[in-house]
């Protein structure tokens, strides 16, 4: 213990308590209260009404659609994330930084625009509009459009978790495996994948959570057809606009629970993920 250290960085008690108070007040106001409000309002009319709200047919179909969209978007972006991370982390090539920046693009784009671009491509007046019409294929205002928009907004999540990690881990283990006679797939399954499993899991969770919670992009492409093209967030909006507040918050509470699960997973995985980055040369000892 070095008391001098603490003394040098020791803020006066008044300042400390003051800052803690301000921080907690700010967070309480902006984070905790809205969270509590969701659950409080959801249960305003009691458990019976709550249960009815979330088991009502349109609500159920919105849940189904949400799960479907996520169920397609997540695996697609997972495969992409793995492929992109492999190419970027294990090889040197020109324009790598450009590629990395491009992968981040969906983050910089407003969700509304994310929906707009697919309307421009597949909507009635879009590039492929007439062709789709001819073949009686509906993308916009139908499920495929929702899936596409969801894929777009969750595009970078897995890749962003994997790329810095794999870059930090380097290629030595893979080289060692190659010299020992492993094939490409054996290398990937036995050496690379186990080294990234926690970050991969976290990326998938983030991707899934965002996929299920997306509102703006999906709102633009969906057409809001009750029971058919509404995801859970859209269903919440419909209920709210009909002044059916308790039901709206009931469905919203499911999404809030999902957010809390995501936060919990992050907490649990964070320590594991930091281990993945661990550098071994730090633990040299004098013993042989």
């Amino acid at each position: 213990m070095r008391p001098r250290t603490d003394a040098a960085r020791h803020d006066p008690a008044l300042l400390r308590y003051g800052l803690i108070f301000v921080a907690l007040l700010f967070l309480g106001l902006f984070v905790v209260l809205p969270l509590i409000a969701v659950f409080a309002q959801a249960l305003e009319k009691g458990w019976g009404a709550y249960w009815a709200a979330i088991t009502e047919p349109d609500a159920l179909s919105s849940i189904r659609l949400t799960l479907l969209a996520a169920g397609i978007a997540v695996p697609l972006n997972l495969v992409f994330g793995l492929a992109a991370a492999w190419a970027i982390a294990e090889f040197q090539f020109r324009g790598k930084n450009v590629l990395i920046t491009l992968i981040d693009l969906p983050f910089a784009v407003s969700p509304v625009i994310a929906g707009l671009i697919y309307v421009l491509m597949f909507g009635a007046q879009g590039w492929f509009g007439p062709w789709l019409n001819q073949h009686d294929i509906k993308i916009i205002f139908a499920v495929p459009g929702i899936v596409l928009a969801t894929v777009f907004v969750t595009f970078p999540f897995v890749a962003r978790e994997l790329i810095p990690l794999m870059q930090a881990q380097g290629t030595e283990e893979e080289e060692a495996a190659l010299v020992l006679g492993a094939s490409g797939w054996q290398l990937f399954w036995r050496v690379t994948l186990p080294n990234i499993k926690w970050s991969l899991l976290y990326g998938v969770i983030l991707c899934a959570a965002r996929a299920m919670g997306e509102f703006g992009a999906v709102s633009v492409v969906s057409g809001h057809i009750r029971g058919e093209t509404n995801t859970m967030p859209l269903h919440v909006e419909i209920l709210y606009n009909e002044y059916n507040f308790a039901a709206a918050f009931a469905v919203a509470s499911l999404l809030a629970l999902l957010a809390l699960v995501t936060l919990g997973a992050k907490r649990l995985l964070e320590w594991k993920m930091r281990q993945d980055y661990a550098d071994f040369t730090a633990t040299e000892g004098a013993e042989g």
Binding site: V32, P34, Q41, A209, G216, P233, A252, A259, L263
Partner: peptide, 28 residues
């Protein structure tokens, strides 16, 4: 952990929660 909530919470849920807090009958 809670600091991340605004990032994790679906925007529509945040939208209606904030609205309900700040209307004239809301808690705040």
């Amino acid at each position: 952990a809670l600091v991340d909530l605004p990032f994790a919470l679906p925007t529509a849920v945040a939208g209606i929660a904030l609205t309900s807090l700040y209307t004239e009958h809301g808690w705040i």
